[in-house]
Design a protein around this nucleic acid. Structure first.
Lengths: 189, 189
DNA sequence: GAAACTAACTAACAATCGTTAGTTTTGAAG
DNA sequence: CTTCAAAACTAACGATTGTTAGTTAGTTTC
């Protein structure tokens, strides 16, 4: 059951529209217009508007989940793992900036797939929290309120989609290092 | 032209609905239901759905603008001013957590008032940038990429609405100090 | 070259949208 | 008790929504 080329084009165009106006404000006729066809023709490739949103969000959520699993099961230090998490966000957001907008803004419209998404998100956040806690226990990370640290870092990483499209390739290479410095600079011992 | 009590109730209920599903997905009939009336009756108090959104977002945006003006024109140090900006965000978000969701997620649906909102937002961000730049020049703030610092702090402060409703009053008093420590801890010299 | 498949089309569906018009209820002031 | 305005109601409007049905043109398979 692999995704056809035409379906992927619909998803790619939809991502951009969803980022501009949000899922609910984008109509099937809007999507059809940028695809150069009529709204009814979209249904030769997708089965519903919902499916487009689900495909966008869940594929990204699964990328984060599998990326996180690789990182936590490595034998690096906690600080190195946190740097890897930052890189993971920069990488995925660079590859799918518009899709990240839907992930952040329109996940509540997932309906049937909502529970699955929330499972993935909760597990991801729990991994992140564990990382910070271990770092404090290891004395790699300063003793500051771990909730605030998780919230602050995650808020910044989740907002990257607003910012990365404005960066060129040159700045993008430095972004990783700068983010580590700013996000972790204050908490690393 | 002051806002009537009943209109303010509509705005308050709408904020909560807008936070849950986004402006576009909330119908006038949804708002009427939580108000205990029929959709048509809403128009005795408001002139359009747009007006509800504009009132929510612009009143908050103006709070930020006037708050920022007070802060930048004070004679405190740059670091103290930044702490005041953090307090400003905590304060406004605590008072209007649902409205902050609309400000962050639905500003693009403002239409006639969009340009005015963008002016306020741009001016606010420019003030923030100036604050960081002055701090670096004064040697109060470490020489790290100022763009990344602005982006990181602002991303966190703008996401507070997701977090503050979960905090009780006790934690809320500590939040200010913890945020300053985490957000500024890495950049203050 | 007949059959099957792909991907577009036109036309239309029932449902829902924001909003308006006109009417009735309510409650306070004279 | 009457008056009057505020605030609710019913009914409906035209526009738009996601989606389905049936058709057609072009391409591939046998």
């Amino acid at each position: 059951m692999k995704t056809s080329l035409r379906k992927q084009e619909i998803i790619n165009k939809s991502e951009i529209l969803f980022k501009e106006k949000g899922y609910s404000a984008v109509t099937m006729r809007d999507i059809a217009t940028v695809m150069g066809m009529k709204a009814a023709s979209l249904y030769n490739h997708i089965k519903s508007k919902q499916e487009i949103l689900s495909d966008i969000i869940l594929s990204l959520a699964e990328d984060f989940t599998s990326g996180m699993e690789v990182i936590v099961s490595s034998d690096k230090t906690t600080v190195e793992k946190l740097q890897d998490v930052i890189s993971l966000h920069v990488q995925i957001t660079t590859d799918h900036p518009s899709g990240m907008a839907s992930l952040n803004a329109d996940w509540m419209h997932l309906e049937e797939k909502l529970d699955y998404y929330l499972e993935l998100r909760d597990a991801y956040e729990e991994n992140f929290r564990q990382l910070i806690s271990s770092g404090i226990k290891n004395k790699e990370i300063a003793v500051v309120n771990p909730e605030v640290v998780v919230f602050s870092i995650l808020s910044t990483l989740r907002s990257l989609y607003l910012w990365i499209p404005k960066k060129d390739d040159f700045n993008l290479k430095e972004l990783d290092a700068d983010l580590s410095k700013v996000l972790l600079g204050g908490v690393i011992i």
